[in-house]
Structures are given as structure tokens and as C-alpha cells.
Nucleic acid binder design. Sequence first.
DNA 1: TGACATTATGCCATTGCTGACATATAATAA
DNA 2: TTATTATATGTCAGCAATGGCATAATGTCA
Lengths: 109, 109
Amino acid sequence: MKPSIKKKLEQAGFAVGDAKDFLALNEEEAAFLEVKLALTEALIRGRKKAGISQADLASLMHSSQSRVAKMEAGDASVSADLLIRALIYLGLNGQDIGKSLVKPFRKAA
Amino acid sequence: MKPSIKKKLEQAGFAVGDAKDFLALNEEEAAFLEVKLALTEALIRGRKKAGISQADLASLMHSSQSRVAKMEAGDASVSADLLIRALIYLGLNGQDIGKSLVKPFRKAA
DNA sequence: TGACATTATGCCATTGCTGACATATAATAA
DNA sequence: TTATTATATGTCAGCAATGGCATAATGTCA
């Protein structure tokens, strides 16, 4: 399975529902993807709440617009480290990040 | 500042109190280290609670004993990704990990 | 004391993540 | 339409993280 294809599927899974182990992933690796997914969702919400562009966040954290786009797209090349750093640069602290994992998402209303 | 020295200082900070920005770290990077520190503490507690050796955890997550030792030592070469994976292989789920960030540590009683 | 188990440290080749760049694809407004 | 801004995608050189190995240090038990 090509990483690019894997990425696409992950994105599709993200758009439809929550992460699943439809790939050659064991339970633990699937759980890890879910954690990253929760961080990604917190990032998207956080940036929009902050009212800044991807380029703005990129310059804040000394990264690039393209990488921020990949973060929000759930690209396989993005680490949890980078997601956590991004959240911190958006003003979240450790507790906030923890909460984003405890309550992964509140689905509309 | 050499990475090795930096590591030592982080360890010292860990042993004494909580992470600080006594290095050439901005506020955000210090906050990131604190998050990693909380994950490290959860890992140490989790493995002891599970009653398994570093080598056991290593084989569980297809890593090595030396790397697990470095995880628990707060070595600078250990990523948050690896810490999170380790916690998952110890049986923690996303919520548990989130909680370990919300309540970083409850100091003795 | 010795034997054994566990943890710590140093090193290194391979892999994976990173920022940066170019460029494509929207989206918004005049 | 044409600008302008924002976001998405592909590529890649450089560097950092990884597992694995050897070995040292520490602990434990008899």
C-alpha cells in the first residue's frame, strides 16, 4: 500500500466519520491515528477561532503555509509533535490540548 | 548549547520541579517540553502499573529497550509521537492520554 | 560474594519529518 | 471578466528520530 493512497483513505475516513482500521493497521496504530485526528480537528477549530490564515500561523511557528495545509489535511507526513506545537502557538496550553483529546469532537450542536 | 547538556538540564528540571525556560527557549517551546514531560510521567507510571520491564514494553511496541529507557529519561531524541504510541501500547486510550495532560501530576497524596 | 535481571548510555545506518519552493486550485471582491 | 487572497498539492535536500547493537551501570536475590 502506497503512502499516498493510504493518506487519501485516511482523509476519506476523516471526512465520513472517525478513524478506522480499514488498513493494515493494528488496534494500537489505529488508536494513534485517532489521537492525531483529534489534534488535527483542534487545530482547524483553533485557527479559525483565532481568525488567522494558514500563512499567519506558519510564520508564527516558523513553518510554511504548505505544511500548515498538510497539518489540517491529515497528511501522513505530519507528526503529532508538529500538531501539538501548532496548538501551543495558537495559544492553547497543556490542559487545553488534553481536553481536546478527552472530548475529541462535539458534533454540531 | 549542546543537546546533551540541554538534556541533562531538562532531567534536572524534571527531578526538581516542573519544566522552565532556563534555556534559549521561547514560551511556546517551553510549553511543548512540559507537554512531553507530562507524557513521560504518564509513561513511567503506566509501565510500573502494568508491572512490565522496559524490554517487555519495547517488544510490545516493536521498539528497543534502549529507546524505552531514553523515553523515560526525557532524552531529547524522543518525540511526542513515540511517547503517545508507548502509552497506547500500555493500554491507554485517547481520553486517558488527554487526562494525563489535564492533570499532569498529582504530587504524593 | 556471584549470578541474573533490569536499566542506562553511547553510537550509527536507515528512515521519516521538516521547511521551502513552485504551482495549482479555490474563494472573494471589484 | 480580472485581481487578490487563501488554501491545496507535489517535490526535494537536509536534518532529526528511530531501532538495534554493544556495553556499562544498577539492582536483586541466594
